[in-house]
Every structure is written in structure tokens, then in C-alpha cells.
Design a protein around this nucleic acid. Structure first.
Length: 313
DNA sequence: AATGTCTGCAACCGCTATTAA
DNA sequence: TTTAATAGCGGTTGCAGACAT
């Protein structure tokens, strides 16, 4: 294995790039393309190593790079992909047009990782930290949770994260694979109990392309009306509930709408826990894997007031 | 105003993978 | 097949600016 020579060894410049250096690099690449990065610095009149030039171009100067704050949607995408891919920054960045792996990595390390830790969620596994369940730290976490519940904004974020957590669980444990004949009777207690044990790894599911996490989405296809019919034995009532649900979904999803999915209405589902499962199930059906979907109408306070959900935490 | 601490991010380091001779 | 050059990736560092004391 060969290694590119260190800049130090050649007396080449290191550290922050000046405006003049940037201009030289951009001008040269625009006129001649980068070609060989090793040869580029000399040709462009730069006292830098090729590697430094390449990084400066790919991480900062490329014209298609998107600067500025990450949107809520981008944040959700990163969280979701990280829960599946781990620290594969390049793979994650490829789903965020205009963002570089370096930028995604920095954003994760400076914002998202801390955010998850504050919520008592392990940033590597995206699951509640088991160690806080058995002793004093657990009580501290609950105290923090209560504090979160008293504040409007952090509260919403906490609820979003918790739901994302559940969504991830369902991705890893699709009902059609784990309990093919018993989808309708899956309870929230089952999910919370299972969340506390080790989830199966992606590789353990047969017939799926593990290099592509989205390849398993077809296995998550669940008829959207099964949750509705589970809450009503009457066909007419079911039909009404469906219509109501679709109406509600249109009203509530707003600009984050994922056109291929809709959510059941609150009146059609008897309990918050069933509602959560329904939401997550529908969100999982989304062909675009739109993680914004599960957050639409479920009332966050209801979710956290549910004792079963507290068991999960 | 001065100093110390924290935070965010650009850039570097060192490794592996890929390519070409 | 071997070897060196190059590209790509993830982890880490260092610095500048923001913020706190």
C-alpha cells in the first residue's frame, strides 16, 4: 500500500486556505478540471499538497455545495440514516444533496449526538440507554424528562425523537417478518419490551440486500385500513373512519406530506398506544421513507402521558 | 475590559480501497 | 501478481469566534 507523501516532508503549506489560494484552485479546476490531484498544485501555482487541494475542493469550494443551517427535514434524514447505517458519513451525505460527508459528520458530532444523549438515547444504537433503567441515573433521566415536559420546544423534540426510536424498531422488526399472522394484535407493551432486548441485525433477515437499507421497505407494506378495522367491527364505521382519516391526513401533513400515505383519525382508534402503532406502521409504508410522517397528528402530550410509553422510557 | 471556557467547523491524519503500470 | 500512486473515508485536532465570569 502506498501512502501519499506528507505535506511537511515537502515543505508545503498547511492550515487554513486564503482567499487567493481558493481563487487559484477554483480558476484552475474550472478551466482544466482537476485531473490528477497530485499534479494539480504545481499546475495551479499552489504550494499545497494534492490531498489538501482535493479536500478543499470537495468540502468547500465545489459549486454545488449547500451552505448554511441544516433544515429540520435534513436533520430527520440524518438521524434516520444514522440509526441504520451508523457512522457512514459518506453514505448518509449522499442522501442529502449539496451536503458533504464532513459537514454531516460535524453536524452530528456538534448537535445531534448531544441532543440524543440529553434525551437518554444512546447515539450509537438509537435506543434508550439500558443502564439508566436500573439505578440512580434512571431517576435523573426521568427528572430531566419531566423538565422537558414543562418546556414547549424541547418537549416536541423529545417526542419526535422517541417516535423516531419506535419507527426504527419497526424497521428492524417488521411485523410481516417477525409475526406474520398476528399483526393486528401487536401491542405497545410488546414493542416496549422488545426495545429493551437486543434487536435483530439487518443481516439476520433473509432475502434482503443488506447494502441497501431501503430494500427492506417492501416487506413493511401493511394495508392502511387494517388499523381502522381493528378498532371497529362495523364495515360502515370502518369506511367512515377511513374517510375521516384521509381527510385528517390531508389537513395535518402540510408541506411534509408524503403523498402515498395517510394516517387514521384519532376518533377511529381507541387508545394512544394503538394510534402510535398505526402511525408508525403507515410511515413505514412510505416509499420515500419519509420520517416526518409519523409526527403529524399524534398529540405529543397524549403520547407521553400514556403509562405504557413511560414504561418504554 | 480582560480573561477563561465552550462551541462549531475547516482541515489534517492515517488508514483502507481502488486503479494502473 | 505485485507494487506504487491515488482516491476516499472516518476520526481527530486546532483555531477562531461566541459566550460566560
Amino acid at each position: 500500500m502506498g501512502r501519499s507523501p506528507c505535506c511537511d516532508e515537502n515543505g508545503l503549506k498547511k492550515g487554513p486556505w486564503t482567499l487567493e489560494e481558493d481563487q487559484k484552485l477554483v480558476k484552475y479546476i474550472k478551466e482544466s478540471g482537476h485531473g490528477s490531484w497530485r499534479a494539480l498544485p504545481k499546475l495551479a501555482g499552489l504550494n499545497r499538497c494534492g490531498k489538501s487541494c482535493r479536500l478543499r475542493w470537495t468540502n468547500y469550494l465545489r459549486p454545488d455545495i449547500k451552505r448554511g443551517k441544516f433544515s429540520q427535514e435534513e436533520e430527520q434524514t440524518i438521524l434516520n440514516l444514522h440509526s441504520i447505517l451508523g457512522n457512514k458519513w459518506s453514505a448518509i451525505a449522499s442522501h442529502l444533496p449539496g451536503r458533504t460527508d464532513n459537514e454531516v459528520k460535524n453536524f452530528w458530532n456538534t448537535h445531534l449526538r448531544k441532543k440524543l444523549i440529553q434525551m437518554g438515547i444512546d447515539p450509537m444504537t438509537h435506543r434508550p440507554r439500558i443502564d439508566i433503567f436500573s439505578s440512580l441515573p434512571h431517576l435523573i433521566a426521568l427528572a430531566n424528562l419531566k423538565e422537558l415536559m414543562d418546556q414547549e420546544q424541547p418537549w416536541e423534540e423529545a417526542a419526535q425523537m422517541a417516535k423516531l426510536q419506535c419507527l426504527q424498531y419497526l424497521i428492524q422488526n417488521p411485523p410481516s417478518l417477525s409475526s406474520p399472522s398476528n399483526n393486528m394484535h401487536t401491542t405497545f407493551t410488546d414493542i416496549s419490551n422488545s426495545l429493551l432486548s437486543s434487536p435483530p441485525q439487518l443481516a439476520s433477515v433473509q432475502g434482503l440486500d443488506d447494502s441497501n437499507p431501503f430494500s427492506r421497505l417492501p416487506d413493511l407494506q401493511i394495508p392502511c385500513d387494517y388499523r381502522i378495522s381493528s378498532s371497529s367491527k362495523d364495515d360502515t364505521a370502518t369506511a367512515q373512519a377511513q374517510a375521516q382519516a384521509q381527510e385528517h391526513a390531508v389537513l395535518s401533513q402540510g408541506e411534509n406530506t408524503c403523498n402515498s400515505t395517510w394516517l387514521p383519525s384519532p376518533s377511529a382508534v381507541p387508545s394512544v398506544t394503538e394510534t402510535l402503532i398505526s402511525n408508525l406502521g403507515d410511515a413505514s409504508c412510505s416509499s420515500n421513507f419519509d420520517v416526518a410522517a409519523p409526527s403529524v397528528w399524534l398529540d405529543d402530550h397524549q403520547l407521553f402521558q400514556d403509562p405504557l410509553f413511560h414504561n418504554l422510557l
